[in-house]
Amino acid sequence: MSERHADEHTWRSPDAVLEWLRERTRSQFAWSLRTNPGVRFGGTLVCLLAVVAVFGPLLSPYDPTAQALEARLEAPSLAHPLGTDALGRDVATRIVHGARVSLALAVAATAVRVVIGTTIGLVAGYLGGLVDAALMRLVDIQLAFPGLVLALVIAGVLGPSLRNVMIALSVVGWASYARVVRGNVLEVKDRPFVEAARLYGTPRRRIARRHLLPNVINPVVVLATMNLGTIVLTAAGLSFLGLGAQPPTPEWGTMIAGGREYLRSAPWLVTAPGIAIMATVIGFNVLGDGLRDVLDPDHLEERERRRS
């Protein structure tokens, strides 16, 4: 009963993975994914953003930070589709680079939240008793503080920088994951298949990984997707306040902060990053909402019931 066997079991050959993928795409699940309007619209927006973030910077002829004082505050034109800012930098290029920064930060922070939150929720839910009580009090404490305020404090204490914003956002948001996971674990752990696993002597750690985790992960995916949007917004907010990315880093929040003074003369300085943030948040939220419909049919039933 060593870990050796576990590895044999978990790592599949590439063929098996392909087979699995094929099964997945043929299934009803894939079908409902493809036809859900939320997933379609949100997914398209998010994919577009990702493409822009990855390839945009490569295509843009301008440097996002180099100043060109001779071309300050130019209105949108063919050469500068979104105009230039007070230091003559191309706004479009900065937006595109900003997408990279925002998305990378959101993904990293969400990943940390998911890992911490899921682990804590899993451990608390499965072990129960004192461990559960202790961990859940920790969660309560975390949830008692408004996330943004706590992040503000942490970022403020650590000093303004993009990295510190990331740290701040990672440590505040995991509690909701822990809650969701724990709740689902409590429900799943008494199902007969988990008991069956105990009966043939599966160690606890493996039960948690193999039988509990796959059955509680769907709401986490939904939550994480929606979270990505909020994190982009919060990060921009912190940067706007001067706690996050520092000029000249192309970041949406910083860009809005810099463009504020020229709101009358050069409105594109604020609207462009504003729309970028809005599109990102909407994209992730709509996608998350759609995913929830597909992954969490119970919730759908409930909504149905409430409507009738």
Binding site: R191, F193, E195, A196, R210, H211
Partner: peptide, 9 residues
């Protein structure tokens, strides 16, 4: 177990 629907992962 009684309920075959829940006794398999």
């Amino acid at each position: 177990f009684q309920n075959p629907g829940t006794s398999l992962n």
